[in-house]
Write a protein that binds this DNA or RNA. Sequence first.
DNA 1: TCAAAAGTGTTCTATCTACACCCATGT
DNA 2: ACATGGGTGTAGATAGAACACTTTTGA
Lengths: 212, 212
Amino acid sequence: MQQAPVIATIVVIFAVIDDALQVLLIHRSAPPEEGLWALPGGRWDGSTGLEEAAEAKLVEETGARDLYLEQLFTSSNLDPTQPSLAVAYFALIDEELVRLRISEEWPPAWHRVDALPALAFRNNEVIAQAVARVRAKLEYTNIAYSLLPEQFTLRELQSAYEAIEGHLLDRRNFRKRMLQTEVIEATGEARRDGPHRPALLYRFTSREPVFL
Amino acid sequence: MQQAPVIATIVVIFAVIDDALQVLLIHRSAPPEEGLWALPGGRWDGSTGLEEAAEAKLVEETGARDLYLEQLFTSSNLDPTQPSLAVAYFALIDEELVRLRISEEWPPAWHRVDALPALAFRNNEVIAQAVARVRAKLEYTNIAYSLLPEQFTLRELQSAYEAIEGHLLDRRNFRKRMLQTEVIEATGEARRDGPHRPALLYRFTSREPVFL
DNA sequence: TCAAAAGTGTTCTATCTACACCCATGT
DNA sequence: ACATGGGTGTAGATAGAACACTTTTGA
């Protein structure tokens, strides 16, 4: 008789920090794959819904709620030491909201997706898929709402897009696109921020996922 | 101690039959949900890869190999009678290749996706997701190769697109798009088929999935 | 008055959409 | 010769890409 496979949820948590797309990793302090960085995750025992389990993990790691969370892919035997199934999710968060756990010797840490070390459990592949998905969905959804605070300047929004897409965008075209598609709207307020003209503040017209 | 969740793979098998998108369903002859139609599927015990398990199920139901098969979504507790996880896949097949099992009293049967009965295990939702995915991917990939024989006429290809998208297309624009994007190429042969000009035959330039 | 970032419009190009006539064949 | 479906091109509309100058502020 085959032993029942282990089921885990894992979460790719993205934030834009220092104008770069970064992912939250934890340091494995026990075998298997001890000493490597890996995606946060945990076993699923069937007593809750799968997405609730992923969401609980996300809250545990970041302290933040009501984030954009989407199922990515399910992989078998990422951990070759035993029959296993891993259901991957990804989430987008504004780094300002994050309160990382700092109790351990090696606390969780952000890593740039374009400069990842070799990770445990083929997590590099999982992250590569997640990056591809986020890049694609940024184009035709409003999921960026989950990366930014309630109010933000157009420059901040554009920087988030540029960090994720990995290339620069034209300011005028970006503004037109965001306003014409009604993804965002002006709040009427402005923010003074140095020796230059103040930036108008915007908000997302919806903080629920919307397809364009 | 919670009992270990049951893990299953289920497969949404699509074909275009009678100018309509249809899905292959089996009839449940035992509880739970006895008497209802449902998607083919089976338990996964961890001894193979997950996709291999889905592919084996696909071969078992259709007798056909080398089909387009893609993971769709993983759902928890579709079957509420026990902790469970179902990993759904979808596949596209040319109905000409299918040899259905016919041994049972209620053999598997094709059902039009626009006129499904109430299915077991919330399978209606799974199929709705699969239909949405296929419609979307038809637009920016060549996955239709898996629905058609080696050689086909442009009319046959267009009919498949129309059946899946659910609306009619312009012949000239369709031809231009398929040829300009180099999804298909002429074979040089033609097929005589009635009291009218013969139709040129085409083949897919690639029978591996390609993004446009 | 100068430096720094914010705000704004137009032109060009490429892509998509709409649309009508001639062609090859079987009966 | 006629009915049937197959093959083809062009014009207009729409969406996306490229691009430069003016404005407001703090020092």
